[in-house]
Amino acid sequence: MSERTDQAHDRPGVYSVPGQDYDRDTRYITTRITADGRDGYPVEPGRYRLVVARACPWANRAIIVRRLLGLEPVLSMGVCGPTHDERSWTFDLDPGGVDPVLGIPRIRDAYLARDPHYPRGITVPAVVDVPTGQVVTNDFAQITLDLETQWTAFHRPGAPDLYPEDRREEIDEVAELVYRDVNNGVYRCGFAGTQASYERAYHRLFERLDWLSDRLRGQRYLVGDTLTEADVRLFTTLARFDAVYHGHFKANRNKLSELPVLWAYARDLFQTPGFGDTIDFAHIKAHYYLVHTDLNPSGIVPAGPDLSGWWAPHHREELGGRPFGDGTPPGPVADGERVPDEHAAPRP
């Protein structure tokens, strides 16, 4: 999952404090992997492993960006199961419950290898230095930016430019609003400690969704006429909205499927290679409804919603735009990384 100590998704523990607004702890390990190795970790093919959980929206960003850029051959990926206990995410999907590359049962082990007294949240995504077994970074926002700007020597031919230099200021501005009011906004609703804090978060969330609808009414993507980092960041929250946030987090003014512009936009992205093929709805629902026992003490996982609408025509291509700019779509999902059909939205 992806954030840090109080992170409602990635970190085992208390997510809200009665009587207070939800406050996400954002003190990450900010070491960077760069082309020049300025922090001691140069970009090198095969050296690092990206550890994710498909349930987590923050980790899902890294999965999407890695796939769009074609980094699978040079940056391996370990996938944790959808649930965790108070200690950390586990590699319970792998034979013997051990990651086959890192040789550990829990991502916590890689954090403690970096710092035996690590005091903060055990989160995903995390990038691990395979030779030492130590976490390099769990700074989820910087991870995708560095994949886009520091790993360019290993991007596939035809990889899109998701963070074009001439658009970065606008991308950053939009992404910050999306993070504050939408990505984190759904958590502010779900883990609010009072009625008043919940209602503040609720109104702020839907005001931003309305703003996004207005922005996207006449343009296909959030910034410019191609896919960018901003679209990736919004998509992972929209993909989870009806399945968990609408009910589980009480973000229930409307379902995504009741917001015509955003629903069409989300379907457009979902049907674009690299986006929908990373979404595991079974993992998403299992995580939220089984781990958040304070919100769902029964542990019952809802049977719905109907997922077939994700493949309905969206007609967003009528607005123009070129998803990959001068590039091309990614190829088929790498061997061993395909979301099982029974976990995905059924095709018509």
Score class of each variant (00 low, 15 high):
residue 312 A to W: 07
residue 326 D to Y: 01
residue 260 P to V: 00
residue 287 H to A: 06
residue 254 N to Y: 15
residue 314 H to D: 15
residue 347 R to K: 14
residue 305 P to Q: 09
residue 289 Y to P: 00
residue 323 P to V: 08
residue 313 P to H: 11
residue 257 S to D: 04
residue 251 A to I: 04
residue 317 E to M: 05
residue 269 L to C: 04
residue 314 H to E: 15
residue 293 T to Q: 13
residue 309 G to K: 03
residue 345 A to D: 06
residue 287 H to L: 13
residue 253 R to F: 14
residue 313 P to R: 05
residue 240 R to H: 12
residue 261 V to Q: 11
residue 299 G to N: 14
residue 250 K to M: 04
residue 253 R to T: 04
residue 277 D to G: 08
residue 279 I to M: 09
residue 245 Y to M: 04
residue 262 L to P: 00
residue 289 Y to I: 11
residue 240 R to C: 07
residue 297 P to Y: 12
residue 310 W to H: 03
residue 314 H to T: 09
residue 311 W to Y: 14
residue 243 A to R: 06
residue 266 A to F: 05
residue 336 G to S: 08
residue 297 P to A: 12
residue 315 H to Q: 14
residue 259 L to K: 00
residue 247 G to V: 12
residue 306 D to F: 01
residue 296 N to A: 04
residue 340 P to T: 08
residue 242 D to C: 09
residue 344 A to N: 08
residue 340 P to H: 03
residue 288 Y to T: 09
residue 302 P to L: 10
residue 302 P to G: 12
residue 272 T to C: 14
residue 274 G to W: 04
residue 323 P to A: 13
residue 300 I to W: 14
residue 279 I to L: 08
residue 243 A to E: 11
residue 284 I to N: 08
residue 295 L to V: 01
residue 309 G to F: 07
residue 253 R to S: 08
residue 341 D to R: 09
residue 294 D to L: 07
residue 284 I to D: 13
residue 336 G to Y: 14
residue 243 A to K: 04
residue 272 T to W: 01
residue 247 G to P: 07
residue 329 P to G: 03
residue 321 G to D: 06
residue 299 G to C: 10
residue 256 L to D: 03
residue 333 V to T: 08
residue 318 E to F: 01
residue 320 G to Y: 15
residue 269 L to D: 05
residue 267 R to M: 10
residue 315 H to D: 15
residue 300 I to F: 15
residue 269 L to G: 07
residue 306 D to C: 10
residue 281 F to D: 00
residue 324 F to V: 08
residue 290 L to P: 01
residue 324 F to L: 06
residue 330 P to W: 07
residue 297 P to Q: 11
residue 292 H to P: 10
residue 244 V to D: 02
residue 266 A to W: 01
residue 313 P to K: 10
residue 319 L to F: 15
residue 287 H to T: 05
residue 336 G to W: 14
residue 286 A to L: 09
residue 300 I to Q: 15
residue 299 G to V: 09
residue 244 V to H: 07
residue 288 Y to N: 12
residue 336 G to M: 11
residue 274 G to K: 11
residue 271 Q to I: 08
residue 268 D to H: 12
residue 254 N to L: 01
residue 343 H to G: 03
residue 317 E to D: 14
residue 265 Y to Q: 09
residue 314 H to Y: 06
residue 262 L to M: 12
residue 269 L to Y: 01
residue 287 H to F: 05
residue 292 H to T: 06
residue 240 R to V: 03
residue 329 P to K: 00
residue 316 R to Y: 11
residue 338 R to T: 02
residue 241 F to A: 02
residue 315 H to Y: 15
residue 259 L to I: 08
residue 241 F to H: 11
residue 323 P to K: 04
residue 296 N to L: 00
residue 288 Y to V: 09
residue 240 R to M: 05
residue 321 G to I: 11
residue 257 S to V: 10
residue 347 R to H: 15
residue 328 T to Y: 13
residue 317 E to Y: 05
residue 302 P to T: 06
residue 279 I to P: 05
residue 241 F to M: 14
residue 295 L to Q: 05
residue 275 F to I: 09
residue 338 R to P: 06
residue 339 V to G: 08
residue 338 R to C: 00
residue 273 P to F: 03
residue 310 W to T: 03
residue 261 V to P: 02
residue 308 S to V: 15
residue 338 R to Q: 11
residue 320 G to Q: 10
